[in-house]
Design a binder for these strands. Sequence first.
DNA 1: GTGGTCTAGACCACC
DNA 2: GTGGTCTAGACCACG
Lengths: 129, 129, 129, 129
Amino acid sequence: MFLHIDPTNGVAIYDQVVRQIKFAVASGALATGDRVPSVRELARDLALNPNTIARAYQQLQADGVLEPVRGLGLEVAAGAAKQCRGERQKLIQQRIHQAIYEGRQSGLDDGELRLMVEKQLSLVLREGR
Amino acid sequence: MFLHIDPTNGVAIYDQVVRQIKFAVASGALATGDRVPSVRELARDLALNPNTIARAYQQLQADGVLEPVRGLGLEVAAGAAKQCRGERQKLIQQRIHQAIYEGRQSGLDDGELRLMVEKQLSLVLREGR
Amino acid sequence: MFLHIDPTNGVAIYDQVVRQIKFAVASGALATGDRVPSVRELARDLALNPNTIARAYQQLQADGVLEPVRGLGLEVAAGAAKQCRGERQKLIQQRIHQAIYEGRQSGLDDGELRLMVEKQLSLVLREGR
Amino acid sequence: MFLHIDPTNGVAIYDQVVRQIKFAVASGALATGDRVPSVRELARDLALNPNTIARAYQQLQADGVLEPVRGLGLEVAAGAAKQCRGERQKLIQQRIHQAIYEGRQSGLDDGELRLMVEKQLSLVLREGR
DNA sequence: GTGGTCTAGACCACC
DNA sequence: GTGGTCTAGACCACG
C-alpha cells in the first residue's frame, strides 16, 4: 500500500488513511474483494500506532467500504467502488466551492476571483504531469 | 459590526472573527484609525463568550492589524490595509490551490477537474449577485 | 444520567452506552437540545475510561444523534428522536425475529415454539411491573 | 452433512457448527452411535478451515455430545439426545427471553411489544412451511 | 471546563 | 496470524 501520511497536516491521521483508501477504491486501485493490509502490518509500515489504523478501518467498515472476513482480515466490499466515486465527487466539489466562496465573501471582485482560480487550476494541472 | 458567525462551520469562531475583520480592513470597510467595538460589546452583539472575542483581538494585535489606544480601546493600525490585502490574496490563493490540489490527488483526470472548478466558479459568481 | 452498564454482558460497553442513549432519545427521556453529560463526567459516574465514553459519543455523532457545541459539550440533534424511534423498532424486531427463527431452525414444531414465545412474553411483561 | 454456515452472521463459525450438530442430535437426525464426518472431510465440504471444525468437535466432546472411537473418528454419545433436547430448550428460551426483554428495556410499552412479538412469530411460522 | 487525537500496552475471540 | 475492546495517560484547540 502506498499511502502518504503527513502528520503535520491538520487533518487527523486516521482520517487521511480513510480518505486515501476511499480514493484508492474510487480510482480502482483497490477492487471489490481485495484484501487491505492488516492493522499491525500497515501500522508498522507507516510507523503509526495500531490503534490509529484500527480506528481508520472501523470508520471504513461503518461507511460500508470494508468488510471483515473472520480471522482473516478486511476486504473491499461489493459496491464500494461506486459509492466511493460518488463520495469523492461530492467531497471535492464541496471543498472547491467553499474555497471559491470564501474568496467571494472576502470582497474580491469577479475578475480577480476568476483570475486567481484559473491561475491555481493551471498551476495544479501543470504540476500533475 | 457586520460579522456573520456560523458556529457549526468547522472553522473556529475566534478565527472567523479574525478573518472577517481582516477582510473588512482589506476591502476598506474598516480604515486606519477606526475603532473596533469593545470586547464586551461585540460579545453581546454576536452572542458569544467574551473570551472568544478577546482571543480574536489578541490575534489581530499580534498580527499588527489592531493597536491599543490607552484607555479607549483598539483601532485599526496604520499600514494594516495594505498588509491585509496582501494576506487576503495569499490566504485565498492557498485555499483554492489546496482544494484543487486535493481533487488532483484523488485521482480525477484533468478534464473532470477543470469541469468541476468551472462549475463551482460560475455557481459562486451567480450566487453573489 | 441513569445508564446501567453490565461489563460482562458480551455486548461492548461503548455499544451499551450508544444503545441506551438512543433508547433514551427514542422514548423522549432526552429531547432535542438537551445536553448529555461530559465525557469525563460520565466516565467518572460509570467508573469507566473516558476513551470508552468518547468512543460511544463519536458513534452517536456519526449516527446523527448528538451534535457538538464547540467548547461546551454535546447535545441531542434535531430530528434524532424520530430517527431513534425508527432504529429502535427495527433493531428490536430483528432481534425478536432472529431468536424465534433460531428456535424454528432447531427443529421445534409450531406448537412448542408458540408456547415458548408466549411464556417468555408474559414472563417479561409480568417482570416489568 | 446438512449444515448451513453463514460466515457473515456475527455468530462464530465454530459455534454455528456446534449448535447445528446439537440440534441435529436433539431432533433425532443424528442418533446415538452415528459417526460424524472427519474433520478434514467436513472442512472440505463446508469450505472452512480444518482448525475451525476441530474446535467445534472439541467443544462437542467437552460437552459430552461426541465420543472418540479409537482409530475411527467420533460418534454421537449415548444419552446425548436427551441432553441436547434439554439444552436446546434452555438455549432457545434464553434467546427469546433476552430479545423480548431488550425490547421491554428500550421503553416500548406492553401493547407495542406484544404486537411485535406476535408479528414476528407468525412471520417465522409462515416462512417455515 | 469541553471534545479530539494519538500512543502504549493489555486481553479477548476467532481462523 | 486476524480484528475488537478496554485502560491509561498525554497533548491539543476551543470557549
